[in-house]
Design a protein around this nucleic acid. Structure first.
Lengths: 223, 223
DNA sequence: CGCGGCTTTGATGTTCATCAAGTAAAGTGG
DNA sequence: CCACTTTACTTGATGAACATCAAAGCCGCG
């Protein structure tokens, strides 16, 4: 089993620990998931935190009628850290959008780390707080916008947060965009065509190119 | 200045500390606010956390067109703990719905507490995580519902979370309900009349009485 | 090679915000 | 304390935004 201080990933909390501490607290397993597989099932016992090392996943809640995508993450990132201390059961599901490599870390292992390493405890608090701010702010921003603004927001989110590139292959379906934006699939498609006609984007199937980021930002900002 | 271990409020993190620790970390001020006054202004430097000892406040974000109420809190509760570690500026505003008494606690004082007392660090993490789960879940639930379901949800929220009573005097305006539910003021009023006609509630100005909680829960659940 | 899920377009209908207009209540200044 | 102003509340009418429905082509997969 790989220990964390050999892990080259930057933002791993365990990385900076001594051999001794790693020995004690390092209770994790590295796993690989294929595209589409569920990593973490809403409602099941919350025993682990996921550290995404490679790949792309979605965080979502399962509803009776439809799912709601909360966010999309690329490596390196902890997922579930926000909610796992506050509930015995996973509040959300996580599934792989692309093939992924990740570590699942025992929650007790992290609790022990908090109880034994104060500096890391503060780092974890900061991490959780930042994540919560980000998720809440996104939701509130979305709520205020109309569908055009929401779609623009999501295109910019993919561009800036996920790909760091204005050209990308859309890793999700139109339906998933709809679940992310809180709108109907048909409207996603109609608006994408509209954006295309207005020369804000160029699309061909899954190939996306943001041509006029300024216009999209304006649309996203004013709702 | 009152120290925390003389404070009779249950869920104060500082309460369980020794005299010595209280001496070191206790850097807080007790304040009183009148109804309507702003306790904490979005965008200003995030230097303090609020511990609500007595009263009722709203947590909200200020938008250009309108505000969005995130939640309503009654004592005893920490407000802003979720977001304050993750940002140098307040992400939200807090204002008094009723006359309130609260402590403002220096953020550095809490950071020191985390760095010096591991058990409290874990408690704070748990607290933050629970709060974040609650806020996020609320937002996601709301998003899925139509306005009837949202209004029912908020009436039940006031009944269960705030007043622990199916009879209460509404502390906020119709407009504020609208800002909480993400709908127009006119619709709040129209739907309240509708609920009244269907014998689910009894209202006379600010006097509210939930008559058929089961029906409201059903409405809230199915959206 | 056929089945199911994804994509696309247009037509239809519902939900909800906005507008208008009036009453009631609550502050405010003389 | 009363006239005045502002804010809160209420109702109905109108229209915009958006979901739902229907129908058809496309693609990948077993």
């Amino acid at each position: 089993m790989a220990v964390c201080y050999t892990c080259k990933i930057e933002s791993c909390f365990f990385q900076s620990l001594s051999d001794d501490e790693n020995e004690k607290f390092n209770n994790k397993i590295e796993l690989k998931f294929k595209k589409g597989q569920i990593i973490c099932k809403q409602g099941s016992f919350a025993s682990h935190v996921v550290f995404l090392k490679e790949g792309l996943v979605k965080l979502y809640t399962e509803g009776e009628q439809k799912n709601t995508i909360i966010s999309i993450y690329k490596q390196p990132v902890y997922i579930g850290l926000v909610s796992v201390f506050g509930s015995d059961y996973y509040q959300f599901s996580i599934s792989a959008i692309e093939d992924t490599t990740l570590c699942i870390i025992d929650i007790n292992s992290i609790k022990q780390l908090v109880l034994n390493n104060n500096k890391t405890a503060l780092e974890i608090i900061t991490y959780i707080s930042k994540s919560a701010n980000f998720l809440l702010e996104n939701k509130i921003n979305m709520e205020r916008k109309q569908i055009r603004g929401r779609l623009a927001f999501i295109l910019l989110f993919l561009c800036k947060q996920v790909f760091q590139n204005h050209i990308f292959n859309l890793p999700i379906t139109r339906k998933e965009i709809a679940e992310f934006a809180g709108m109907s699939t048909e409207n996603v498609i109609t608006l994408l065509s509209e954006f295309k006609k207005d020369n804000m984007i160029k699309i061909e199937g899954k190939h996306f190119e943001l041509l006029n980021i300024k216009a999209l930002e304006e649309l996203s900002a004013k709702g």
